[in-house]
Nucleic acid binder design. Structure first.
Lengths: 254, 254
DNA sequence: AAGTGGTCTAGACCACTAA
DNA sequence: TAGTGGTCTAGACCACTTT
């Protein structure tokens, strides 16, 4: 286990040390393949294998046509889900800008933007189960892309049983906000949420929509909202790239 | 964008389709490099590049000396952090097995185990900030490795200001459990937690300690506990591999 | 035009695992 | 021992970006 390193592992280890020590700073270009070939006297594919290891570890990102760079940290958006759709909180801070995500982004001096698409679908099995829909139950889905300073930051799909929202303003592809979440605007009150967070690599599609660099994992955050009888009203699945988000909860320890 | 695929991308796309359609089932071996070379008539490195793409996406795991396999999903441990150290909840279910993680695992018919190491350290800067320690403040750290059926499932480091716990049983490397968390056993009551969840690729060290397959991201869950005056008492950093955990919160929407 | 990385080939040797 | 993947070489051509 502590034995000799292969050639490509040597290169990876050396570069990793330089990056972690700060000798190679974030945003800085790493040595080109030609430079590494000369420095070590190894063949090109060997050098490439070494660099690839660091790319897979997420320490290095790859540009196009020009160079590879030490990964830079994004300023993360801190997203507090324990107050995110709270009616109380919404009254307290009196924000009218939009939802709390938009408020938090704006408060940091950045420009939030959202695109919304609405459609009626046969939901995937997991959503059907969470919403307790039957085999043939339809759902209205509001699909959002959230941007910060015109960079895509998150995907958010909100599913509601079609029977609950047919004919309401929620069917329109506009931004709708209300204390207690969009459902409150049509009189449906969610009294409890169950949130589940899974961590995984993005699908091809997600990586493309979010312009993710390689080796960027995502959090899949699923919030299911229930009414006072415990009936599920809505299910929101949010894809949060790990390099630009922190998820926060405030918990009472009682 | 919709243009021609390179040879290695063709192989990746074909295998991805077979995996997603179920033609290649989880746990099943994918075709060997020799088979793919013959099937496509491509050179070995080209075939390897195609397969590597799927490994990086997390769809394929790599064994040693023998074959590559379609990734199998672990049965995930669902970890409810909204009740995890609740005093009320602890009284309600009357569990004595250990903490709630251990209870949840045991309830699923699996065998939980923990190893604990205790030491006094100069904490890293992030921990110092969260605990509001000065430049030279020391911390007691309880480092746990949590196992399920003798497989490592999570790393959990709990930092407490040295001044608060010096001379208490918390300095001993034993399992300590109490309603409200270990601190309650020495009379320190946490009334509020702030949890922050970040998503990233594991460090080399974490990957080794947890025996992580390649392309397995982790959640870094940080819980800071405060007393009723808002003073931080403890900071627990838990590393949760994405392939074997789901994080859950129950939230009141008031 | 020069420099970068991406793709591809046709070899070779080695370490590990299963039969 | 046969089959697997891991490492490595010395070439080649191409697409993209910067100067």
């Amino acid at each position: 286990m502590r034995g000799k390193l292969t050639k490509n592992q040597q290169i990876a280890a050396d570069l990793r040390t330089e990056i972690e020590s700060g000798a190679l700073a974030p945003g800085e270009a790493i040595p080109s393949e030609a430079q590494l070939m000369e420095r070590y006297g190894f063949s090109r594919e060997t050098v490439r294998a070494g660099v690839r290891t660091l790319v897979e570890e997420g320490l290095v990102t790859t540009g196009w046509g020009q160079g590879k760079y030490v990964r830079e940290a994004y300023p993360p958006v801190i997203w507090d889900w324990s107050t995110m759709e709270s009616r109380r909180r919404h009254e307290a801070d009196g924000s009218k800008v939009g939802d709390q995500w938009a408020s938090a982004v704006a408060a940091d001096g950045h420009k939030p933007r959202q695109e919304v698409r609405v459609s009626i679908v046969e939901p995937p099995k997991r959503i059907r189960d969470l919403l307790q829909l039957g085999e043939d139950g339809l759902a209205v889905v509001r699909q959002r892309v959230r941007y910060v300073d015109n960079l895509p930051y998150a995907l958010s799909d909100s599913y509601m049983p079609e029977s609950l929202v047919a004919g309401t303003p929620l069917m329109e592809p506009r931004d709708v906000h209300a204390p207690g979440g969009v459902l409150a605007s049509v009189g449906l009150i969610q009294v409890k949420y169950r949130d589940e967070i899974a961590v995984r690599m993005p699908t091809r599609e997600e990586a493309e929509k979010l312009s993710l660099p390689v080796a960027t994992p995502v959090a899949e955050h699923t919030r299911t909202g229930y009414d006072e009888d415990g009936k599920p009203l809505r299910c929101m699945v949010t894809i949060l790239p790990g390099d630009r988000h922190v998820i926060r909860y405030e918990v009472d320890a009682d």
